[in-house]
Amino acid sequence: MATNEPRITAQTLKILGVLLSPEKDEMSGAEIGRSTEIASGTLYPILLRLESAGWVKSEWEAGDPRELGRPRRRFYRITGIGGRKARLAFREIALPLKEFAWL
C-alpha cells in the first residue's frame, strides 16, 4: 500500500545534508535554496514531503510582521527521525563507494 516515506533523490539528500549541518539549527526556505542551489519550484514540494513524513518540522519566526517590517520567515529544522533516516541514506550511498576507496 501507500508509503509515507519520501523518495530519496539527489536533491532530497542535498536538503537533508544542509539541515543536518551543525552550523545552523534552523533555516528558512530561501536559505536552504541558496545553500543547496535548488530552485524554488523543486525545493518546496520536497520540503512539504519531508514535513509530511515527519523528517522535518517548520515553524514561523517569532515576531509580528508589522513590527518586523517584512513577512515572517518560516524556519525548517530536521527532526530526530529525519536525522536518523538521513544518516542511514548517506551511509547506504557511502558503502558501495568504499569499494572504490583506491580511486
Binding site: 528558512s28 526556505g29 524554488s40 519550484g41 523543486t42 513577512p71 520567515r73 518560516r74
Partner: peptide, 27 residues
C-alpha cells in the same frame, strides 16, 4: 502566501525575485 512573500523578499535583485516566483507557480 506569507512564506513565499518572505522568500521573495530575501532574494536580491528584481529579476531574481521574478525567477523565484515563477518557481513558486511550478511548486
Amino acid at each position: 502566501e506569507e512564506e513565499w512573500q518572505s522568500h521573495a523578499a530575501e532574494v536580491p535583485g528584481k529579476f531574481g525575485k521574478l525567477f523565484v516566483c515563477m518557481g513558486f507557480v511550478i511548486a
